[in-house]
Computed example of a mutant assay.
Amino acid sequence: MLIQFSVTNFLSFRDEVILSLSTNKDNSHKENLLFYKNERILPSVAIYGANAAGKSNLHKAMRAAIRMIRSSNNLQIDQPLLITPFLLDENSRNNKTKFEFIYVYNGIKYEYGFVLDTQYVWEEYLYEYRSSKPSMIFERSNINTYRFTSKSKPQLSKIVDKNTSNKLFLATATSWNSDLTKDAYMWFSNMVDTYDSQNLEELMFKEFEKNDNSLNEFILHLLQKADINITNFNYETNEQLKIMTSHQVIENGKKQEYELNYFDESNGTKRLFTYGPVLKNALENGKTIIIDEIDNALHPAMTKSLIEMFQNPNINKKSAQLIFNTHEISLLDLNLFRRDQIYFVEKDNKTGVSDLYSLDDFSPRKSENIQKGYLQGRYGAMPVVNLEDIEW
């Protein structure tokens, strides 16, 4: 369960921005909330903003940090790190990038962060919360200077020499069987994922190869929920995966069934197919998923239905979370979301710097028309369209 993510100096985010899934004291939609001890956590977050404002850059920041952790052990000595800082001022382009996560795994709350550039990991730290106060597991500074507690030192100090200046100690220690870092690492390995249109379809094909009948049932339920005229589908996983959908129509007063190839279906239908494995996996295992442009090719009612799956405790029994960006303003509704579930990304066109902030910062009334306020520019994060000064 993700509680907070922050990033500094990555792509258009020059200054630190914080995405918090920890709630305020507002009791709106309290039946939808997730819990860690006495802390209330959001099941979903929607992120809005104009084109090129930086919404996808936040998605890329989370993806880059997670991939860095997962792939750290595969790095060769002196292999460059694929990090792009803010490039539109001289100081930032030569400065370091920072990522930090606060999350819960196996009933323990962790705080993990690291600072790096394209060559070295300069700082890194891991804390756990066995009580209300954090306890250090390790701290790293100046690339290769480490601090441990009397409890963690006997085990972790032996692993320092196994690490290199471009690798994350969290990943290295876990690969050397440290039980002090294992759970903190496994959350990144198994419990959080980022998705966009490029990897959704590839993942779906891999999942179908497992021949999981329950996945078929889940996808068919999604399709029928969307009122799509598909009564069934089947697939073959020989040399190449082939999906055939069954459509029932009335022909000459009689019911007839015809098959279509998956690739002949509409983009919206194909998108629901690709969401099937992702949503099923998240809901069954309590994962946090981050989706770029969730509404791509989907009707607003269907997008809303997907979000409501995570906000329904009868469906979301394992505390899964959904973080997504979207342009779909019909979802800007306080009957669907709490005020702290709606975020905006706005870019300063004079500096190129993106900022991230919550609707809750504006303290709108619960009866306020959020859609109207957003379109009127009341919360920022709207494009300024001026066609009059353009020569056509």
Rank of each mutant, 00 (worst) to 15 (best):
G276Q: 00
L298P: 02
A50S: 12
F86G: 02
L272I: 09
A301L: 11
W187T: 00
I228R: 11
T149S: 09
K25A: 12
S22C: 10
L19G: 11
Q76E: 15
N349R: 14
Y343L: 09
L322S: 00
L168P: 01
S135Y: 12
G352F: 03
G380V: 05
N238K: 14
L180I: 10
F138H: 02
S56N: 14
R67H: 11
A61N: 02
F208K: 01
Y374A: 03
M136T: 08
T8R: 12
M302T: 07
V45K: 04
Y36L: 04
A61G: 08
F344G: 00
I230G: 05
D360T: 10
S165D: 13
R14Y: 06
G253K: 10
P43Y: 05
K182C: 03
A320T: 05
S12V: 06
L272T: 01
S22D: 09
D193S: 15
Y374E: 05
A184M: 05
K350E: 15
N216Y: 14
K280L: 14
M382Y: 05
E123Q: 15
K109P: 03
L375K: 09
T172M: 11
P134T: 02
D78I: 07
H327P: 10
H59V: 13
A53W: 03
M309H: 06
T181E: 00
Y262I: 07
M186L: 13
A46R: 08
A171H: 04
F337R: 02
Y36F: 12
L298Y: 05
G276W: 00
K287H: 13
N316W: 04
T274Y: 15
L220N: 03
V45Y: 05
Y262W: 12
D340Q: 08
Y258Q: 09
Y357E: 07
Y379G: 01
I250E: 13
G54P: 07
G373I: 03
L11D: 03
N27W: 07
R63S: 13
F310Q: 00
Y262Q: 08
S92R: 09
Y343E: 04
E236M: 09
Y110G: 02
A226V: 08
L331Y: 06
N325E: 10
S44V: 08
S319W: 04
K96W: 15
N316P: 07
E90H: 14
N335M: 08
D196Y: 07
S165L: 12
N106S: 15
F324E: 04
N190E: 15
L58G: 01
N386M: 13
L34D: 02
D193F: 15
K30G: 09
S22H: 07
I390Y: 10
I219P: 00
D348T: 09
S197G: 12
L322G: 00
Y195A: 01
F188D: 00
F344K: 02
F310S: 01
E124D: 06
L359N: 01
N51H: 12
L180F: 10
W187R: 02
K366P: 02
Q256R: 12
L42W: 02
F138L: 05
M302S: 04
T164H: 13
S165Q: 14
